[in-house]
Amino acid sequence: MSDSLATVTDQQTHRFERGTDGPRVILVGVDGSDSSLRAGAYAAGLARRQRALLAIVYVQPVLAAGAALGVPVAETTDAIAEDLVAQIRQAMEQSKDTFDVRWEFHTFRGDPYNGLVAAADELKADAVVVGASEQAGHRIVGSVAVRLVKAGRWPVTVVP
């Protein structure tokens, strides 16, 4: 075998593979919007079929301007997180006999894009699922989903 062929073969056999024969951790970003809840349902189905852990992530926005004006931002976003957990627990409880999936709920603080990136890195996500933006301006500026796809670090599924 020639040296160049041996080098190529060695490089191919030593590649790092994050996952196994399918994703171990599927991360889904939720914020309470209809599209994020649809993304959560879709991700739960993927996790069930792949026998993967479903990591449900809510990124609590840090609104410096609101906090400066005395608006209780932390309490508001904490309440949203608690409401999301309650909705998720209720949905899982209703479907536990027919729909068994392992799941965890995580909250991160920051802007949605950087929060989801940090979550995916920390949780070692093999796939990311998000809902399509429902805001018209995102078609011009770019949404969190588009930025995640462009990052090219994980397979990203955008649910309409």
Rank of each mutant, 00 (worst) to 15 (best):
P155V: 04
T77S: 11
G66C: 07
R38Q: 15
I140C: 09
V73S: 08
A132V: 05
R102Y: 10
H14G: 09
K124S: 13
G70A: 05
A136R: 06
F108R: 01
V159A: 01
D100R: 03
E93G: 08
A119Q: 00
P61L: 04
D121T: 10
Q94V: 12
I140T: 15
G152R: 05
L27H: 01
A81L: 09
A6L: 15
E104R: 09
V101W: 01
T98D: 12
G66W: 04
K124N: 14
E104D: 11
V71G: 03
R24D: 12
L5G: 14
S33Y: 06
R147C: 10
R109F: 04
G110V: 05
I56M: 03
D126T: 04
D100T: 14
A41Q: 11
V129M: 04
V128I: 12
D126N: 03
G29Y: 02
R51C: 15
K124C: 07
T76E: 09
V158P: 06
I88Q: 02
A86Y: 11
E134T: 09
H14A: 13
R109D: 07
S33K: 02
D3Q: 12
A145D: 03
D97M: 02
P112W: 00
G152L: 09
R102D: 15
L5V: 12
L46V: 06
D31Q: 02
L123Q: 03
A127Q: 06
P72Q: 04
R48I: 12
G19I: 03
A74I: 10
G137F: 14
E93V: 07
Q60R: 07
V59F: 06
L5E: 05
A91H: 01
E75H: 09
R89T: 12
S36Y: 02
A64I: 15
V25E: 00
A67T: 12
D97V: 12
T157M: 10
L116T: 05
L148P: 05
M92P: 06
L63M: 14
L27R: 00
R147I: 10
L53V: 07
K96P: 01
T20E: 15
G66V: 07
V85W: 02
V146P: 00
D111W: 05
F16S: 06
W103K: 04
D126H: 04
R15W: 10
V73R: 01
M1E: 05
V28W: 00
L37I: 14
P112T: 05
L37Y: 01
L54P: 02
G40P: 02
Q94C: 10
R49D: 13
A44L: 03
